[in-house]
Simulated scan of single mutants.
Amino acid sequence: MKRSAEIEALEQRLGHRFERPELLRRALTHSSMSGPGREDNQRLEFLGDRVLGLVMAEALLGEDRKASEGQLAPRFNALVRKEACAEVARDVDIGAALKLGRSEMMSGGRRKQALLGDAMEAVIAAVYLDGGFEVAREMILRLWGARVSTVQQDARDPRTSLQEWAQARGMTPPAYVETARSGPDHAPVFTIEVRLASGQKADATAGSKRKAEQEAAAALLAQVTAND
């Protein structure tokens, strides 16, 4: 099957030339573009998530041979969650090659975290089916790069840490309140305030509620632990 310039450019960024380029095309096809004779990437996404999980579990065991399961689990989650996959997808500009329906394209689908994360998982599956596990493993470790060795610093969700801090002091869990929203519908910006029963609070602004909540929690956690 003849390759487009777009597919060849993405292959170079991925570091894998497909024997079956139709696998990569399928991995890049969102459900908004599926139809008779054109499969979307949802089944590949399912498989890619499992391939990524195995590679990361193996890598983490090798990275820290003394870590307990309780220490490894949050590191694993940080490496395989949708946000991490979307970050890597942005690094190799998967968004530029996505096949989207008109509505998704008009609503900024090439930049959406969920679509990018799903596509990254689908691409992993495509590489696995095309070249085998070792080829997929090499690509994943190369694309994730230093994230694997530095994940210990970033694995804890600040929302979880703040909640544990509050509970240890007999407080109710922190409350998160959306105080502002701006920007167009396809690229909203949220401001979230997190409050403790003690009256302490902090806020943050980001392009997703989850990110804003995390940043607000991190700010409040830094504030309260400085006084411990």
Rank of each mutant, 00 (worst) to 15 (best):
E58A: 12
R75S: 13
M106Q: 14
A73K: 07
R43W: 11
E39N: 09
L100M: 06
V51K: 00
E39Q: 09
R50N: 03
A89E: 03
L100S: 09
A97G: 05
V51D: 03
E104W: 05
A57S: 14
A96L: 09
K82L: 13
A59R: 08
V80D: 03
A96V: 06
A89H: 01
L54G: 00
S31A: 13
M56N: 05
M106A: 15
R75K: 14
V80L: 05
R38G: 03
L100R: 06
A86M: 05
E39L: 15
A84F: 05
L100E: 04
G108M: 05
L98T: 06
D40C: 11
L100V: 09
E58D: 15
Q42R: 13
E45N: 09
S103M: 08
G70Y: 11
K82I: 12
A67E: 10
G70K: 01
S103D: 12
L61W: 12
S107G: 02
C85H: 03
E69T: 14
G35V: 06
D64W: 14
D40P: 00
L79C: 03
D64K: 14
R102N: 02
E69A: 14
L72I: 15
E69H: 11
F76H: 06
L44I: 04
A59Y: 07
D93R: 14
G35L: 10
V88N: 04
L79H: 10
V80F: 03
M105S: 11
I94W: 02
S103C: 00
D93I: 13
S31E: 10
R75C: 14
M56C: 00
A67C: 05
L61R: 10
M33V: 04
E83P: 00
A57Q: 10
L79A: 05
Q71R: 15
M106D: 15
G70E: 13
G35Y: 07
L79M: 02
L54Y: 10
S34V: 04
G37D: 06
I94M: 03
G70W: 07
L61H: 07
D64P: 02
E63F: 06
A97T: 08
M56K: 01
C85M: 04
L100Y: 11
G101Y: 11
F76D: 02
M106L: 15
V51I: 15
G48M: 07
L28F: 07
A57L: 10
L98G: 07
D40T: 05
A78W: 09
A78H: 12
K99W: 08
G53M: 04
G95P: 06
L60R: 03
D91E: 12
A84P: 01
R75I: 08
Q71D: 10
S31P: 09
A27P: 01
A73Q: 13
A57D: 15
V88M: 04
G70S: 05
K99L: 08
G37L: 06
G108F: 08
H30L: 06
T29E: 02
A96T: 11
G101D: 07
E58F: 08
A67Q: 06
P74E: 08
L100A: 10
D93M: 13
G109D: 08
L61V: 13
R43G: 04
R38T: 14
T29K: 09
